[in-house]
Design a binder for these strands. Structure first.
Lengths: 226, 226
DNA sequence: CCAATGCTTCGACTATGATCGAAGGATGAA
DNA sequence: TTCATCCTTCGATCATAGTCGAAGCATTGG
């Protein structure tokens, strides 16, 4: 009857509350064990196991077994992007899971999205880098310019390190709260990790919120002015 | 337990096969009546009615009543963008509804996506306009440059006509097949309509496929060179 | 007014799948 | 080896919601 990709299958996969909780928890980018995800989703280990199997079969998750632990993570940035897009729809039409509170405002300001910075802070960083032509956009492809390479190495990140990852260096990711692009991809993750190492930012425990330290606040404005 | 938008609600809404068919049918951009959608979805009128009610309540659809007909359409470009994103996931993970056939190849080349041009043709048009600086990208916002305004009016579209629409003039939409951006928004729709008026393109009946005429082929290459 | 069409509501049936208890396999620690 | 932890599989229960037949509104046309 119809042709094209089977959208219902994927959507139904995301459409269960327990599975949606699991996926949302994994948006933070860290790989989590099955039991951790069970508690995140608010179901027993058995139930979570069956959900994880389905998500795995559906290609949304990736599994790495380490000893008796099984670590699950999102299978790729495209999954994260789709989830953000769905969040945008849900938020735009006023279906917030909980009432909009101070926590939401914090999330809107800075949060982690699959290991890179999202929220107004993330958008600010992206805009700043675009404005100064450290990044350039062509179509949907974002690339690091020559000036950008210099900037990044002076920022303290070594991009020349060998990598076996085939993931794109730069990737635009649509922000559900700000409705603008922020930087994802390997570079986005590296910059996030770097700021974490320098104690500019700390992750909220059990939350996607990102807290800027006083130093971080100052440095961020200095490196990424509008 | 969790915070943020209620993603499961929206995803579950899209996750039913009948509703997914309805939404996919509406991706073509035209408003369709309840009975038309019922036949598209392959269910009876009663069933479709209940689905349409739910989609309406969920904010995914928009309703305009005309006489005894009720015309349903997608509530906005953000909905279309999310659907495309889901298609990308589904296609990427190999869940095609039907076997990949010639029809799919045609769809990949040129199709209508919420009343604007998508597929490799759509991407080509977008790239061409970006390259020649008729469009400029800043973050997620796409804007028509001064040169772009000149180009559009020589193309034969009058943008000075008064509009009560608050929809953005330019909007990037991620293509599920090409995985690049193509032009959506009011301008994207206007350009599509213009090419339709000039018989450069015709829509496939009951399909999202777009057929280029010989004239259209030639003109398209002339106006949007790579 | 009546008849026809488009659409929705109601009610009942049914199936899918979400859930958890219990049990079993796998790994690591002692 | 023995025990504990992590995780999965099996089986049974139960609720949600997708489906359609029948009936009821609403609108149009004669």
């Amino acid at each position: 009857m119809k042709n094209g990709p089977d959208i219902a299958r994927v959507a139904a996969l995301i459409g269960d509350p327990a599975r949606a909780n699991i996926l949302t928890a994994l948006m933070a980018g860290k790989a989590l064990t099955a039991t951790e995800l069970a508690s995140e989703a608010g179901v027993t280990a058995q139930t979570a196991s069956s959900h994880l199997k389905r998500l795995l079969d559906g290609g949304l998750l990736r599994l790495r077994g380490q000893g008796r632990h099984r670590y699950y993570s999102l299978s790729g940035p495209d999954v994260a992007a789709t989830l953000e897009s769905l969040m945008g729809l849900a938020a735009g039409h006023g279906h917030l899971r909980t009432r909009t509170g101070p926590k939401d405002a914090k999330l809107r300001e800075a949060r982690v999205c699959y290991n890179h910075l999202a929220g107004t802070r993330g958008v600010q960083m992206y805009r700043s880098m675009i404005q100064r032509e450290l990044l350039s956009e062509a179509g949907d492809h974002v690339t690091l310019t020559d000036r950008g390479h210099g900037f990044i190495s002076s920022f303290g990140i070594d991009l020349s390190a060998p990598t076996r990852s085939k993931a794109p260096l730069c990737l635009g990711c649509l922000d559900w709260s700000a409705r603008e692009t922020h930087l994802a991809g390997r570079l986005g993750r590296a910059m996030f990790a770097h700021m974490e190492d320098r104690d500019w930012i700390t992750r909220g425990i059990g939350s996607r919120h990102v807290q800027f330290s006083a130093l971080g606040q100052e440095m961020f404005e200095q490196w990424f002015p509008v």
